[in-house]
């Protein structure tokens, strides 16, 4: 069976005198390389230009807020349980009076840490979350100098009220998986 039509039958024979000169082979090789000189380059100049990611790409996490800017997370701990790498640590706290504009429900995560070096970006936390709180985005985890600084806390993970992170692509994927009829 042939998978491609590019296979060549190899013949073990003495080279004839033209082939022994090597020069025709050298020149045809050089012709091939010079063609590549003018080809479109494959390089993406990373920090300035970003490659387009697939809609299912799983990058750095985000902790979502609702439309009023309140944190969705209620510190139920399902993500931490679901996490196969045990990368998530949560400390829960009760919402005080006057904090209704900060947290959506009575309980919230006082501490929410993801160890980015342990995380395997499987997306199970996102699947486990009943409150639409955690999503994996198409953002790349930035480089750090120490292991400790890879433990991302709420200051990095929770989205800013004025710069929302778009996760609509992930949500769509989610709905298709969970509601095959739609």
């Amino acid at each position: 069976m042939q998978l491609t039509n590019r296979s060549k039958v190899v013949v073990q024979r003495e080279m004839n005198w033209i082939e022994k000169l090597y020069l025709p082979a050298v020149f045809s090789g050089m012709a091939i390389t010079i063609k590549h000189l003018f080809r479109k380059k494959a390089t993406v100049k990373y920090p300035e230009v970003q490659r387009e990611f697939a809609p299912v790409y799983r990058g750095m996490h985000v902790l979502k807020r609702d439309e009023l800017g309140r944190e969705n997370c209620t510190a139920c701990g399902l993500c931490a349980v679901a996490c196969p790498a045990e990368a998530i640590t949560i400390d829960a706290a009760e919402r005080k009076k006057g904090e209704e504009n900060l947290y959506r429900e009575e309980k919230y995560a006082a501490k929410y840490e993801i160890n980015m070096l342990r995380c395997i970006y499987c997306g199970l936390c996102e699947e486990a979350c009943p409150k639409d709180a955690i999503y994996l985005t198409d953002r790349i985890v930035p480089s750090e100098y120490t292991r400790g600084s890879f433990v991302f806390g709420k200051d990095v993970l929770v989205e800013k009220v004025d710069e929302r992170i778009d996760v609509s692509k992930r949500k769509k994927e989610y709905s298709i998986v969970n509601n095959p009829g739609k």
């Binding site: 390389t33 010079i34 590549h36 000189l37 080809r39 479109k40 380059k41 494959a42 390089t43 100049k45």
Partner: peptide
Amino acid sequence: KVAAFLQDRIGPD
């Protein structure tokens, strides 16, 4: 640069 261009890269920039 030549190496990069011959290999469809852009080299040091």
